[in-house]
Design a protein around this nucleic acid. Structure first.
Lengths: 120, 120
DNA sequence: ACGAGGCTTTCACATCCGTTTTACCGGTGG
DNA sequence: CCACCGGTAAAACGGATGTGAAAGCCTCGT
């Protein structure tokens, strides 16, 4: 897991994360995240704009190396995505880099030259 | 494959490569590259301005010698070129040296007469 | 101590994407 | 003309990721 630095506030678009309070605000409204969901989101957001591998996410959030066949990271990325999308439908926050991992950034869905299916 | 030296950052024009994070930025925006595409780009960029042969690229990126009739290196050079051109249309980064291999350098695209894909 | 509900993990299946391979094209030099 | 080389598109294949749901845990209130 990670230590919280005091006064830390992460903003990305309409999203605001306050690791000190374990609080996440979407357009000002609190998001209800479980411990794991929150861990994944903060781990990614803190490392933005870098790509974080599943192995790293496992160490950071689960405190143990990723076991072969373990899909829990994927599952939780999916859960976080769902909740974020429900709160802020017009922005994508978690981006997949196949073979590398996930990257956090507030970007419009399916726009721009790096998210296009023809460009992958 | 290659090991990443920490803090390494390769810049060429509007292109920025951060091998530590497997991250490539074009004019500040993250480029979505596959593992192989990324491998080819980094291999060439790290060796700039030298010419890298297909045989070398195959060893570096694919971890095995180039087999007769194998076109995968060419195919991936093409893919990387496409994505780079889409992101940064005004610069060419990968130059062909017929009979020798490829060379990485940020250079203005074709001007003058022989407007073909190759460079001598 | 017990049960309910939420959280986490695991599983199965669907889908997407990347890689490799094949084919065809134009150009070039013998 | 022929042989070779590189550019490019696309088929074929396999692996990676997305997704819904079951199964297992844990916590909390009673």
């Amino acid at each position: 897991m990670e230590a919280a630095r005091s006064d830390e506030v992460i903003r990305a678009g309409e999203l605001e994360i306050r690791p000190d309070d374990a609080l996440v605000l979407a357009a000002g409204r609190p998001l209800n995240l479980s411990v794991r969901e929150y861990g994944v989101l903060v781990a990614l957001a803190r490392r933005a704009p870098r790509i974080v591998s599943r192995e790293q996410l496992s160490s950071i959030v689960w405190d143990h190396p990723l076991r072969a066949g373990d899909r829990s990271v994927d599952v939780y990325v999916h859960k976080v995505r769902s909740k974020l999308e429900r709160a802020l439908p017009d922005v994508r926050f978690i981006h997949t880099h196949v073979g590398f991992g996930y990257r956090f950034a507030a970007e419009p869905p399916l726009h721009g030259f790096h998210t296009d299916a023809t460009t992958r």
